[in-house]
Amino acid sequence: MDKRFKHTLVAFKICPYCMKVLTIMCHKNVKFEIKFIEMHNKPDWFTKISPLEKVPILIIGEEVVLFESAAIMEYIDEITPPKLMSDDPIQKALDRAKFEYSNEIIKSLYQFIFCTEQEKFVKLKEWIINRLKQMEEWLKDKKYLNGSEISLVDFNFVPVFVVLNMLKPILPCDMLKDYKRVQNYGDSLTSLQCTKTGRVPDYEFLMIDGIKNQNTVLFRSNPCYFNGPKPSRCCFFSK
């Protein structure tokens, strides 16, 4: 490979925004190397090249550094035809708005999962359910957000359904129970092979350990689950 176009992804193992990028890279069969870092102990080389000191970043060659998951995903889509992002200006703008919508859901979902305060936990749950209601209206009779074929915007929602599926046995309520279209949409996304390969083999273990170690509301609601056998590995990340 021409070193000018070598791709190196820098990621944190349980970062949902990294999962987005990994999923589209796996879907598009992009060759890449990956470096994992710990966000509580960022290496100096990372803080020097990452403008916001956040993951993911994609290093292209030896000099170019892309940051922000949406920018990286659009770049990957551009260099690997056929493109999944629409060329229509209106549709592209709508999709980019939904990129941000997915980010807000993901942020609140992770806050919900790792929340230690009961009152805040309940408010976050209600907020997330209302956002899922909006998605139910967007989907109507469509398999994906833009129709029968998957598009780039859909990959932004993969982490939402990976997390909801993983924690379904312990969530205090089925957050999708009133939204059949969203359920079907989530099933379509999580059944993709790239969704399985787009996260590290230890993802489920690390998430559950984090929930337990922080004494979250979820842990306190069902300690037997977290102290029992760990879930079997269900992903095959091998990059």
Rank of each mutant, 00 (worst) to 15 (best):
K168R: 15
P81Y: 06
E149H: 14
G198I: 09
Y144I: 00
D95Q: 15
E33Y: 09
I76M: 08
F12M: 11
L206C: 11
T190S: 12
E53N: 14
G186P: 03
L132V: 11
D87N: 15
C26R: 13
N222V: 05
F32P: 01
K98L: 15
D2P: 15
P16D: 04
K54R: 12
P201Y: 07
E74I: 11
N146I: 01
K123M: 12
D202H: 03
I79K: 09
L145H: 10
P43A: 05
N130D: 15
M166A: 14
V162M: 05
L52K: 14
F114L: 15
L9C: 08
K20G: 01
G147V: 08
A97L: 13
P82D: 06
K123I: 05
Y179C: 06
L164C: 08
L218K: 02
E136A: 10
V162H: 03
Q111C: 08
D202F: 05
A70F: 00
P229F: 06
L145T: 10
M85F: 11
Q214W: 00
I170L: 09
E119Q: 14
G61D: 09
H7T: 01
D187A: 15
I37W: 07
I150H: 08
R181M: 11
D209I: 07
T80D: 02
F99M: 07
K3P: 14
L164G: 02
C234L: 12
N184T: 04
Q193A: 12
M19A: 08
I150K: 10
T80F: 01
V153R: 04
K142C: 11
V65Y: 01
K239P: 06
H27Q: 13
D2M: 08
C224I: 05
K177T: 13
Q193P: 00
T80I: 02
I129C: 06
F161L: 05
V55A: 12
C26A: 12
Q91D: 12
E74M: 12
G228V: 09
K107I: 11
E38F: 08
N227V: 02
T47N: 09
V10T: 11
K143Q: 13
F226K: 04
I128F: 03
A70G: 07
L164Q: 07
P43Q: 08
Q134D: 14
F237C: 14
G228A: 13
F161Q: 05
I76P: 00
Q183N: 10
N213A: 12
D178T: 11
